[in-house]
């Protein structure tokens, strides 16, 4: 991969700043970049040689529209990924390294595993599962009621490790999982249900 310092030489200050900012963004896998580049190349349509060039004014609007589209796409992408990218933490830009079995297994070991939670609450109006895996945010994992209306269920991707959780019933009542061991939080003295998630 060419070093971005090559592009900096003699470049406009705005471009230099843009290069610097882009270098801080998370790394993107090479094959993804290749796919995007090849898709862009395929989609690029050149005007036939005998077709007169479009008037300057029209082209300018075309460029503004394209630029606007890119900015809008970036805004949407930024919004979609806002929960997954935390800017205060340092983002390391990975060099093009070979993928070793060890790094593959390490990657696999931190990949989330879908875990199912089941809870019996026949009279509840709504139930959520909350825990350290969703930062104790009841809005992120609402449970669905089963056909007979007695059981509630949710399947949530969770990274391997030890997790403390509970069920939030009707937005007010915190209930432990009767099927799981409970653990006392040493700081708060409060109980939570605990589940150790390994690899399937």
């Amino acid at each position: 991969m060419r070093d971005s310092r090559d592009f900096r030489e003699g470049a406009d200050p705005v471009v230099r700043r843009a290069i610097d900012e882009l270098r801080r963004l998370p790394s993107v896998e090479d094959h993804v970049v290749a796919k995007v580049v090849s898709a862009a190349a395929t989609a690029r349509v050149l005007p036939p040689a005998d077709e007169p060039p479009a008037p300057v004014r029209e082209r300018r609007w075309e460029r503004i529209a394209i630029g606007g589209g890119i900015v809008a796409a970036a805004a949407i992408a930024g919004f979609l990924f806002r929960g997954t990218v935390r800017s205060p933490e340092p983002v390391t830009v990975a060099a093009a390294t070979s993928i070793t079995p060890a790094s593959l297994s390490a990657e696999r070991a931190v990949a989330p595993i879908v875990e199912q939670f089941i809870f019996k609450a026949p009279t509840a109006r709504h139930v959520s599962v909350i825990g350290d895996f969703n930062r104790w945010d009841a809005s992120t994992a609402p449970m669905s009621r089963s056909g007979d209306g007695e059981l509630w269920s949710a399947s949530i991707p969770i990274v391997p490790g030890r997790h403390v959780y509970a069920f939030m019933v009707d937005d007010s009542l915190l209930v432990l999982d009767p099927r799981a061991p409970k653990t006392r939080d040493p700081d708060l003295g409060a109980d939570g249900s605990v589940r150790i998630v390994g690899r399937p």
Binding site: D12, V14, V15, R17, A18, E21, V71, A74, F79, R82
Partner: peptide, 14 residues
């Protein structure tokens, strides 16, 4: 240049 700068600014802001 302006596209690039706009993209970076929006991305950073988001």
């Amino acid at each position: 240049m302006s596209c690039c700068a706009g993209l970076v600014a929006v991305s950073i802001a988001m």
